[in-house]
C-alpha cells in the first residue's frame, strides 16, 4: 500500500491503481469520457486531466506548477500530490469541452459536458459528427471481443472509425459490443450488418414451455362470447378483400426493389457516416438494431457517464459518524 494526496486528502491505495481509480475509490469524482473500466485506458479525451506534483521535486507551490496528466493513465506513486480541480485543470477542461463542441454540439452528451465545464461556445466550427473519437468501440472490439474488426484510420481531423479499407469486415461478428459501448450512438448495428434480422422471440420450447402461448379464453377475460370478426357482408362489402394484382394496378411487372442509384442515393449504406444525417437517430430511446422507437433507453444518463461531481452533504456525513 502506498500513500498519496488527492485534493489535500491523504489516501492509501494499492500500488497498482491509477490516479483515477484511487480517486473514485475514495469518493472523489473526476469526469471522464473515453474511459471505461472494461478496457485499457486510452487517455485521448483529456477530460480526466489532473494536476500532479511528484515527490521528487519538493512541495508544490505557485513557483512550481504541477504537470497536467490524464488521471486514467497515471499510475499512483508514493507521495504524489494530485489536484483534481485546480484553476489550471478547470481552464484546460473548459477549453477541451469547447473543442469537443466544434463537431459535437448537437450531441446530448457533449452538451452535458459543456454545461458541466462551463463551456459556452464551440472553439471552432467543424462538420457535425456523432463520433467523438473516444476509441471505446475499437478497444472493446480488440480487448473484449477479440475480433479486431474496426480501428481508427486516417490522421488529424480526418480521423475516423472504420473497418479495414472501409469495406464491411469479415472479422466482424456483429456482436454489437461497439454499438452498446458507444457513448453517443454514433454506431448503429444496421450500419455494421445490414442483413441482420430484428431479434425474434424465442420459440416456446427454447423458453422451456411445453406448448406455445395460448390466448386466454374469453370467459377468463370476462367476455361472454369469443370475439367474432365482422364478416364482409356485415361491413357492407360484397366480397372478401382481395389484393389487387399488379396488372389491375396498371403495372406491367410485379414490384422490384430499385438499386440504390435509382433511388437517388449516392452510395450503398455506409458503416459510420460523417454527418448527423447518415448515422440514424441520436435519440437513445431508439432501438439501435432496427431503428424503431420501441426499446427502453439502453444507455444511462449522460450525467452518470460523466461521473459529474455529486453534491455531498458533509454535515450529514459527520453526524452519521
Amino acid at each position: 500500500m502506498i500513500h498519496l494526496t488527492i485534493d489535500n486528502r491523504d489516501i492509501e491505495v494499492r500500488q497498482t491503481m491509477t490516479v483515477l481509480e484511487a480517486a473514485r475509490a475514495n469518493g472523489i469524482s473526476i469526469p471522464t469520457l473515453c474511459y471505461h473500466e472494461a478496457v485499457a485506458p486510452y487517455a485521448a479525451c483529456r477530460l480526466c486531466m489532473v494536476e500532479i506534483n511528484t515527490p521528487r521535486g519538493g512541495k508544490p507551490g505557485p513557483d512550481r506548477p504541477g504537470r497536467i496528466v490524464a488521471a486514467c493513465a497515471q499510475p499512483c506513486e508514493q507521495g504524489l500530490t494530485v489536484q483534481t480541480n485546480s484553476p489550471r485543470v478547470q481552464a484546460a477542461r473548459r477549453v477541451t469541452a469547447e473543442l469537443l463542441m466544434a463537431s459535437g454540439e448537437h450531441l446530448p452528451l457533449v452538451q452535458a459536458i459543456a454545461r458541466a465545464m462551463g463551456a459556452e461556445h464551440a472553439a471552432t466550427t467543424l462538420p457535425p459528427n456523432d463520433c467523438i473519437l473516444c476509441g471505446l468501440c475499437v478497444r472493446a472490439c480488440d480487448e473484449l471481443v477479440g475480433a479486431h474488426a474496426i480501428s481508427l484510420v486516417e490522421r488529424g481531423l480526418d480521423k475516423k472509425i472504420a473497418p479495414p479499407f472501409e469495406i464491411t469486415s469479415a472479422a466482424c461478428i456483429a456482436c454489437a459490443t461497439c454499438v452498446l459501448i458507444c457513448p453517443t450512438g454514433a454506431i448503429m448495428l444496421k450500419d455494421i450488418a445490414p442483413s441482420l434480422p430484428h431479434p425474434q422471440p424465442l420459440a416456446h420450447e427454447a423458453r422451456g414451455d411445453k406448448s406455445p402461448p395460448q390466448p386466454l379464453a374469453h370467459e377468463a377475460r370476462g367476455v361472454k362470447s369469443p370475439p367474432q370478426p365482422l364478416s364482409h357482408e356485415a361491413r357492407g362489402d360484397k366480397s372478401p378483400p382481395q389484393p389487387l394484382s399488379h396488372e389491375a394496378r396498371g403495372d406491367k411487372s410485379p414490384p422490384q426493389l430499385l438499386p440504390y442509384e435509382e433511388r437517388g442515393v449516392k452510395s450503398p449504406p455506409s458503416f459510420v457516416g460523417k454527418g448527423a444525417g447518415g448515422l440514424g437517430s441520436h435519440d437513445a430511446r431508439t432501438c439501435r438494431v432496427c431503428g424503431e422507437a420501441t426499446l427502453p433507453r439502453v444507455f444511462a444518463d449522460a450525467e452518470y457517464l460523466l461521473n459529474l461531481p455529486i453534491e455531498r452533504d458533509q454535515k450529514a456525513e459527520v453526524q452519521a459518524l
Partner: peptide, 21 residues
C-alpha cells in the same frame, strides 16, 4: 502541426485547428 496531428487527443486535433482559424 494541424496537418500532422495524429488526431488521437482532442486538444491537439481540434485545438490546433481552432488556433489556425
Amino acid at each position: 502541426v494541424q496537418e500532422e496531428s495524429c488526431g488521437k487527443c482532442t486538444p491537439c486535433r481540434v485545438g490546433t485547428k481552432a488556433m489556425l482559424d
